[in-house]
């Protein structure tokens, strides 16, 4: 039963990942990416990491993908033409990077001890629950957790600083004139 679910979910993930990179329409790519995240969330559930699965859907499928959709819809990227993709430099850089990624993956797949890692042999069924994950985050991994928090906080401050505008109002001949200036 779990094996069938695993096969179905991984097929969904792989197929939708392939669709993400093969679609010409960026909106379609983003929507396939959402499906991909659902597949990954399903795999997390199979591993017993329910909390992580929910977070995956809230953060990625729910929030970040909505942001992606916004950007894609606003920028109207439909006009990406195929001629630009033909450049030799771009293609060769892509080939080198994906070749390196392939080497990395092959290495890690070959050196992993699959018998020990196989999902049926997870001894502690509770390891992925909110309680376990939370107590781990606030004990063993407190410092990295806080550092991630500070990083995100810095990003938020950066956004505020970039978006902050100075608004000046003055009255000339009975008409209120508002001026917006970029501060950053």
């Amino acid at each position: 039963m779990i094996k069938i679910a695993f096969i179905i979910l991984s097929l969904i993930s792989i197929f939708s990942a392939l669709m993400v990179i093969s679609r010409k329409n960026p909106v379609a790519s983003v929507l396939w990416l959402v499906f991909h995240f659902f597949g990954i969330a399903g795999l997390y559930v199979l591993l017993g990491a329910h909390f992580l699965a929910a977070v995956q859907i809230i953060v990625y499928a729910g929030a970040i993908m909505v942001l992606f959709l916004f950007v894609v819809m606003m920028l109207n990227l439909n006009l990406v033409n195929n001629e630009k993709r033909g450049k030799i430099i771009g293609k060769s850089i892509g080939a080198v990077v994906s070749g390196l990624v392939l080497v990395l993956f092959t290495y890690s797949i070959r050196t992993t001890k699959w018998n020990e890692l196989f999902f049926n042999q997870v001894t502690d069924q509770e390891w992925g629950t909110a309680v376990k994950l939370g107590s781990l985050l606030f004990s063993n991994w407190l410092v990295p957790f806080q550092i991630v928090g500070i990083l995100l906080f810095a990003a938020v401050i950066g956004v505020v600083a970039l978006m902050k505008r100075k608004i000046t109002r003055k009255v000339e001949n009975g008409i209120v004139i508002t001026q917006e200036e970029d501060v950053a």
Binding site: V34, H50, A54, V55, I57, I58, A61, V66
Partner: peptide, 17 residues
Amino acid sequence: LNIGLYFILALSSTVVI
């Protein structure tokens, strides 16, 4: 579910999509 309330938040966030 042991993540009941989180499940609710997760699913309702997909409505936006």
